[in-house]
Design a binder for these strands. Structure first.
Lengths: 256, 256
DNA sequence: GACTATCTCCTTATGGCGTAAAGTGACCGG
DNA sequence: CCGGTCACTTTACGCCATAAGGAGATAGTC
C-alpha cells in the first residue's frame, strides 16, 4: 500500500498547498524562526537521500537545528508535511504537449520516470487520495494535453492515463528498489543473483523442466555490461513496455 | 518503495520455500510446539485483514498464543517470514494458457487483480529482489505460456511481462489504498472528495481555466452508483487500460 | 536415576518511530 | 512593567524488530 497523504484537515492543507495568504493578526509571543518552506526543503533533502524510511520528524528537526516537536507549529502532522513535499517536487515537471501525441506522451513518461528516480519516495505516495495540489494536478493536465491530438473518448482516456501512470511508477519503483537493496545490503544485483541462482539449482534440480519458458527467456538476454543487472533490465523493460502501450493507444485512435 | 523480502541467508530461506526435507538428527531439548506452516498461516491471516502495517511479530505470536520472540526459532526474521507468506499465497493462482493468447493473458491479469484484492499486502512486496519460490515463478511461467501463441521476441516479451505486472499491481494497489483509506479514516470516497473539492473551488477559483482538460474529463463520468467512487474508477480503468495494453501487444504481433 | 548438553520459549532491554502533554522563556499590546 | 500568548523544549506513551540472557524441558550417557 502506498504511504498516505491527504489525511488531515483539508482546509489547512489546501491553504498551504495553494499558498493562500492567511494574514493572521499580529500576536504576542516569540517570532517564528523557521518557515514551512524551509521544513519542506529539509524533508525533501532527507527523503531523497535516505528514502521514505529515513524520513522522520526527528531527522527533519535535527537538520534544522530543532527538535521534532518544533515542527508541529508549522505543520499539522507528518502526512501534511508529505503532502507539501509531494506537491513541491512535482513543480520540477514541465514536459508539455507536442503536435504528435506520441512524442508528447513519450516525453511525459520519460520525464516522469527520471523524476521518480530522483525522488524515489514520491513513487510511494498513494494515488487513492490525491494531494490535489497545483503541481500534481498540472502533471495530469499535461498528460491530457499531450493525449488531446489523439482524440480519444473519456473512458478510454481515463484507462490510458492510469495505465501509463501505473506503468511509469512501477518501472521506476522497480529500479529504485533494486538500487536501494544493493546499497542497503552491500550486495550488488549480480552477487545477489549469483547466490540465489546457485541455491535454486541445488534446491530445484528440475528447474528447466518445470519452468521451460522462464529458462529460455533468461538465457537470451543481451547485457549492457556497464550497468547493474537490474538497471539494465528495468531500462529495457521501460522502453519496450512504453512502446507497446503507445501502440495500444494508437490502435484505439484508429478505432475511434 | 516496496517492502523487501529475499534479504536473508538464501540457503535457509530457499530450503523452506522449496520444502527441502532437512532431516535434522534427533536433538535433546523440548519438542517444538509450533510449525513454520502455522506461523505462515497466522501471519497471512493477519496481513489479509490488518494490512502490511498491522503485520508485526508480536501480532503473529499473540495469535498463536506465544510471544514475538518465540517465532525466531522457526523463522530467521520478519523478511524471511514475508518470503514464505508471499510464495504461499501465490499458490492460489492457477489460470493457464488458452488457444487464443489474448484470452489467456486477460484471464491471467484478471485473476492476479482479484488476488491482490484478497491479499493487499502481496502487492507491496518489491519485485526487485524476487523471492524465487515455486509459486511466484509459476505465476510468471504461466504468463509466458499464455503469451507463447503470440510469438513475440524475447525483449518484447520482457517489456510486456513487466508492463502487465506493473499495470495489474498498480491498479490493484489503487483500489486497495482507496478501501484502506475509507476504512481507516471512516470517510467514504464521496465524503473525502466532497470536502476536498469544496475546498479546491474556494482556494483555486480559476480551477476550470487552469485545468480545462481535467475539468472536462471529470464532468463526463458515468457512475455505477452501487459502488464507491474510487472502486468504480479503478474497475473501469483496469478494464479499459488492460484492453489498450493488449491492443499494443496485438500490434507487436502483427509487426513480427 | 542422575547428570549434562541442548533446545524452546520467556523476560527484559535497546534504540527507533509519531505525537500528546506539560514546562520554559521570549515577545507584544496595554 | 505586566499579563497573555506564542515558539520551542523536555518528557512520556505505546508501538516496532530483535539482541541478550535466563528458565525449564528433553534427550543421550553413565
Amino acid at each position: 500500500m502506498g504511504v498516505f497523504a491527504a489525511q488531515g484537515d483539508p482546509r489547512r492543507t489546501m491553504a498551504l498547498l495553494w499558498r493562500v495568504p492567511t494574514d493572521e493578526p499580529v500576536r504576542p509571543g516569540p517570532r517564528q524562526s523557521l518557515t514551512v518552506n524551509a521544513i519542506v526543503d529539509a524533508a525533501i533533502a532527507i527523503a531523497d537521500t535516505a528514502g521514505m524510511a529515513g524520513l522522520s520528524m526527528r531527522a527533519v528537526g535535527e537538520r534544522l537545528g530543532r527538535t521534532a516537536m518544533a515542527l508541529y507549529t508549522y505543520v499539522a502532522d507528518k502526512s501534511e508535511l508529505l503532502d507539501l513535499m509531494y506537491d513541491h517536487v512535482h513543480g520540477e515537471l514541465v514536459a508539455d504537449a507536442q503536435p504528435n501525441w506520441r512524442d508528447g506522451v513519450t516525453a511525459w513518461a520519460e520525464e516522469l520516470f527520471e523524476f521518480y528516480l530522483r525522488h524515489p519516495w514520491a513513487a510511494q505516495v498513494s494515488m487513492a487520495r490525491p494531494v490535489l495540489g497545483p503541481h500534481e494536478l498540472n502533471l495530469v493536465e499535461r498528460l491530457l494535453r499531450a493525449l488531446e491530438p489523439a482524440g480519444l473518448r473519456g473512458p478510454v482516456v481515463r484507462g490510458v492515463v492510469s495505465g501509463l501512470t501505473y506503468f511509469v511508477q512501477g518501472a521506476a519503483a522497480f529500479m529504485n528498489d533494486a538500487r536501494h537493496a544493493a546499497r542497503e545490503t552491500g550486495q550488488s544485483d549480480e552477487d545477489w543473483w549469483y547466490a540465489r541462482s546457485a541455491e535454486l539449482t541445488t534446491v530445484a534440480p528440475d528447474f528447466a523442466d518445470r519452468y521451460p519458458l522462464l529458462t529460455r527467456l533468461e538465457s537470451d538476454k543481451e547485457f549492457d555490461e556497464s550497468l547493474p543487472y537490474m538497471e539494465n533490465e528495468a531500462r529495457q523493460s521501460f522502453t519496450t513496455g512504453l512502446r507497446t502501450m503507445l501502440d495500444g493507444v494508437a490502435a484505439q485512435v484508429k478505432a475511434a
